[in-house]
Amino acid sequence: MMFLLSTLLGLVLNPAFIAGHITNVVLFGDSYTDQSRAHSIANGSFPGKDYQEVFPPADTAADGGVQWPWYLGLYGNYTIWNYAVGGAVCSNNLTPLSGEPDVAFGQTAWFIQDHIENYNTSQQRLLLDSSDFVVITFIGTNDVGIDSFVTFNESVNASLPDVADCQLNHLREMHALGARKFILNFLIPLQLTKLYSNSSAPTIYFPEVHDGNAWNQGMYNLVHSLNRILRDGIRVLNAEWAGDGTVEYFDTYGFFSEMYHNPTPFFNGSIPANVTGHCHQCPDPFNFTFCGIGDCTLAERDSYMWWDELHPSEQTGRNLAAEMFKKIEGKSQY
């Protein structure tokens, strides 16, 4: 009863996504959100062919198919502006994983290019209506992962609060550009993925024997710590803006935990729901050319929560899109 009451109070006290009609959704993030930009950068001249396509027919996302923003646009009849890039972090100055356009600079620059007229002049103008679009940021997986915090490869003097500040300052930058409605996604329970499980066996993303127990516990702590800092920071931002803008968090951790522990309503392929294995197989962790051998069938795909050792499946993305649509409408418990 107390949980239900707090949920209802949250809906009453946070009417921003109910009042007014959302027609555009702007997204920033990494491979959990990117449909085409990373591939376009790799396969064409920078920023690459098709880089503005939400769903280019010849491309697939890191989930093995169509990424969740496309489904969100379908469910809500939204125009989707997806600036996420696979391999991205919040700031390359903090956790320079692979140098892909980051949220703080590269991806924000794309938004400015598309939606800001006379940028950085006295005539600067936002071309979108601030009342009918919402900004969704979903970043941090690469910041805390391999070649970063979990393997102690972050930049010198970079801390977890710095990563949180990067995300919050990005929202401040978007607010300064005229955005007024925000959703900040928490990190998912990464310790449930094969990559960050307690197994020490090599994987395609880290083809070396490693201390799986240390990674698993370390990732659990990193994810919970960053999510807690972000939750507190969101309260600060809302107080700072004093009604001139609203940011809510989406409890991605809680939603993914629900799918993991109660999978049957979410996964409906031709075999029983599978939340511990993954569809896409790479039998030799030292050789990408063997990837795909032993994959689940097309009919089985919707039974899997995970596409590979790190990425959620397309079906998981559909579930996320449906719940995010409810969040934008003010009807999600997450």
Rank of each mutant, 00 (worst) to 15 (best):
F3A: 14
L9Y: 04
G10W: 07
L11F: 07
P15C: 14
P15G: 13
A16K: 06
I18L: 07
A19H: 04
H21F: 00
H21D: 13
I22L: 06
F28I: 11
F28L: 05
D34V: 10
Q35I: 02
A38N: 14
H39D: 15
K49R: 13
D50W: 15
Q52W: 05
Q52R: 11
Q52G: 04
E53Y: 06
F55D: 09
D59S: 14
V66Y: 04
L74V: 14
V85K: 10
G86N: 12
S91L: 02
N92C: 09
L97Y: 12
A104N: 11
A104D: 08
F105R: 10
T108D: 00
W110T: 10
H115A: 12
H115Y: 08
N120P: 00
R125K: 10
L128G: 01
D129N: 15
D132I: 12
F133T: 01
G140I: 03
T141H: 01
T141P: 03
T141Q: 07
F152D: 06
E154D: 03
N157V: 07
S159N: 09
L160D: 06
P161H: 15
Q167G: 06
Q167K: 08
N169Q: 13
H170T: 12
L171H: 13
L177I: 13
R180I: 13
K181P: 00
K181E: 08
L187K: 11
I188H: 03
P189S: 15
K194G: 15
I204H: 06
P207G: 12
E208C: 11
H210W: 08
G212D: 09
N216K: 02
L226K: 03
R228W: 01
N238V: 06
A239F: 12
E240K: 08
W241P: 05
A242H: 14
G243R: 10
G245S: 04
V247P: 03
E248F: 03
T252L: 14
F255P: 00
N262W: 00
F266R: 02
P272H: 02
P272E: 10
N274G: 01
G277Q: 11
C282I: 10
P285Q: 07
P285S: 10
N287I: 05
N287Y: 09
N287R: 05
G292D: 15
S303E: 11
Y304F: 15
E309D: 14
P312C: 01
S313T: 03
A321E: 02
F325M: 05
K326T: 07
I328A: 11
G330R: 10
Y334H: 02
Y334D: 00
